[in-house]
Design a protein around this nucleic acid. Sequence first.
DNA 1: AGCCAGGCCAAGC
DNA 2: GCTTGGCATGGC
Length: 208
Amino acid sequence: MIYQLYKNLLKMYGKQNWWPVSGKFKSDFDEVAIGAVLTQNTNWNNVEKALKNLIDTGKTSLEDILQSSDEELYKIIKPAGFYRQKTKTLKNLAAFIEKESVENLNRDKLLSVKGIGEETADTIALYGLNQLEFVVDKYTKRLLFRLGLLKSENEKYFNVKQLMEKNLPPDIEVYKEFHALIVEHGKRYCRKNPLCDDCPLKDKCYNS
DNA sequence: AGCCAGGCCAAGC
DNA sequence: GCTTGGCATGGC
C-alpha cells in the first residue's frame, strides 16, 4: 500500500520541507535547479559546501553561472564532486532557460538538456516548478523492492514513477514530502547495507 | 582504508 | 534493448 507507506513515513519522521532551503538564491527555481544538478550521485553534505561557495562568491543564479568561467566554477563547486560535468550541465541548463524562459518549462523540456536525466528533471519540475511529477531515485527503488512492491531493484524509472503516481492523490505536497521522506528513511535505515534491526518498518518488510 | 552518496552519458554488445 | 566504465569529493 503506497499511500499508507507515505503516511507511515510521515508519522515516523515528520515533514521534511526540502526546498527551497536557503532562500539566498536569486529565485527559488534557481536554488532548486542548481541544487538538483549538484546532488547527482552525491551526498547532500558535499552539495552544501558547494552551495555555500556559490553564495559566498555571489553566484546565486543560473545567469551568474553562465557568466562565470569554467575554471572559476570548478573551484567553487569542487566539493560536490564530478565538478567538470556539473559545470557543463549547469551552463547547458542556464543557456536553455535563457532562450526558453522558465514559464513554459516542464519535465520533457528539461530532459532535452544534456546532463539532465529523469530524476533531475522530475526534481526540478516538482520542487522548482511545482508540477505534479513524482521523483524516483535509488532509494525509492531499493525501498519498494525490499518491501515487496517491486519485482526488481532495477525496474525501469518510468514504471516506478507510474506505480507511485497511480497510487497517490494528485497533491504536490504529498509528492514533495514523500520523496524527501524516502530519502530520509534510506539514509537512516534502508541503506545499501540495511540496518534492519532498528528499522521502524521491519514488521512490514520482506527483507528482514 | 574502502565503501558509498538524493545520476548521467557514451560506448559496446 | 541492456551492461559497463568514467566522472570526483568528503564522511564514516
